[in-house]
């Protein structure tokens, strides 16, 4: 049996300032080699789940546990979680003016390597890796030397996220609405990139509102998140059913 990479148990979380509960006892187990899709109506808590798991400020976990590879990660800083192998592809990738993509990634990669007590990557190997991985998502090499996400089109930003994922080789990747704002060609490219990156040792969680993405990245499980809980779990056919009937059908 393959090993459990991410184990979320009875997760309760609220928005710190408002004290408003968003996640209300969420359970999710993700094993190596699996692709999970989390679907649900707006406001169900999909993005909050991504934020809480990755350690963003402003949320308070009031109950439950999140384990990666068997170790609790809730007490870790966001960068430590990343170093443990968690990757979040942002719904709205952040622009960092003046910091080149390359510089950014090399810094990140070497920090992660240092954490894992590996040798830092040489400039030559790094550049070779950049070339290889950017081809994966058809990302113009020029974008790699531009400032992080600055002046990128919506599609370029999303491809850049997958490119970064390819570079950092995470154990668990959460793709938060990566399909939003993508035209069909860009969607195909992004999906093809993700498909190439997934293997028996990692796992992918797709957070999406539409089943469109699931035509290209076929999930092993589809979960429906509503009002802070997973209310239904099925296979790919569940997504199609949701597409057809809408989320109201669940109530």
């Amino acid at each position: 049996m393959s090993k459990t990479l991410l184990d979320i148990k009875n997760l309760h979380a609220e928005i710190e300032e408002e004290g408003k509960a968003i996640l209300k006892g969420l359970n999710l187990t993700v094993k190596a080699g699996e692709v999970h899709a989390i679907m649900g109506p707006n406001g169900a808590g999909k993005s909050t789940l991504a934020s809480v798991v990755s350690g963003k400020d402003g949320y308070e976990v009031t109950d439950g546990t999140v384990e990666m590879d068997g170790a609790d990660i809730l007490e870790l800083d966001p960068d430590e979680r990343a170093k443990e192998g968690l990757f979040l592809a942002f719904q709205y990738p952040v622009e960092i003016p003046g910091v080149s993509n390359i510089n950014f990634l090399r810094t990140a990669l070497n920090e992660i390597k240092e954490y894992r007590q590996e040798e830092p990557i040489s400039a030559k190997d790094f550049m070779a890796m950049v070339r290889e991985k950017s081809a994966l998502v058809d990302l113009d090499a020029k974008l790699a030397s531009r400032s992080v996400n600055e002046g990128f089109s919506g599609g370029e930003k999303k491809r850049n996220e997958i490119f970064q994922m390819a570079m950092l080789e995470p154990k668990v990747a959460i793709l938060d609405e990566t399909d939003s704002g993508l035209d069909i060609d860009a969607l195909r490219i992004v999906a093809a990139g993700v498909n190439k990156l997934k293997n028996e040792n990692n796992a992918v969680i797709l957070i999406t509102h539409y089943q469109r993405l699931l035509d290209y990245i076929v999930p092993d499980f589809v979960h429906v998140l509503a009002d802070g809980q997973i209310v239904k779990t099925g296979d790919k056919s569940l997504a199609l059913e949701l597409e057809e009937k809408g989320y109201d059908w669940l109530n």
Binding site: S54, G55, K56, D57, D77, P78, D79, R81, A82, K83, F87, L88, F90, P93, V94, E95, I96, F104, L105, T107, A108, L109, E111, I112, Y115, V148, Q164, L168
Partner: peptide, 14 residues
């Protein structure tokens, strides 16, 4: 803060 978080998510310390 969003920039700091983005960097941290990629493994950079604060």
């Amino acid at each position: 803060e969003d920039q700091i978080f983005y960097c941290q998510q990629r493994g950079l310390s604060e």
